[in-house]
């Protein structure tokens, strides 16, 4: 069994979130999610500067077989996107916790309280 990084928070919709300085939250998808999706061939990144609310759909990851929505764990503004994924979406398959997808600057970190820690998320994916 692969150990989930302890420094991340996890959503039921299989995103991970990492809290950085200045209330910036970095978001990607979990190893479990990339494995379920299979080979990724396209990632639709959110627009820089877009204002989003928590649980809003803001990106799409597409594998050979299917398209899957990504949701922001917090409300705020998109302040960075990982544009290297436009040409190399497979980075997410190879290194899901390194290949982040977008960053949200938030004024309200409380949305993160709804996320799980590694142990709780492990129970979800073990089911």
């Amino acid at each position: 069994m692969n150990h989930l990084p302890e420094n991340l928070k996890y959503a039921l919709s299989h995103e991970w979130a990492h809290v950085e300085d200045d209330n910036v939250v970095r978001v990607g998808i979990t190893d479990f999610a990339q494995e379920q999706l299979g080979d990724l061939v396209f990632i639709e990144l959110p627009e820089l500067g877009r204002k989003i609310t928590a649980q809003e759909q803001c990106a799409v990851v597409e594998s050979v077989k299917t398209a899957s929505d990504l949701f922001s764990p917090v409300s705020g503004e998109i302040v960075a996107v990982n544009s290297t994924l436009e040409d190399e979406p497979e980075q997410v398959n190879e290194n899901p916790y390194g290949a982040w997808i977008f960053c949200v600057k938030t004024t309200d970190l409380s949305g993160l309280d709804k996320l799980m820690d590694a142990d709780a998320y492990q129970l979800v994916i073990d089911q």
Binding site: G38, D39, V41, V64, K65
Partner: peptide, 10 residues
């Protein structure tokens, strides 16, 4: 079987 671990593209 949908794939065998190395993925559809492989």
């Amino acid at each position: 079987p949908v794939h065998y671990g190395q993925g559809i593209i492989h």
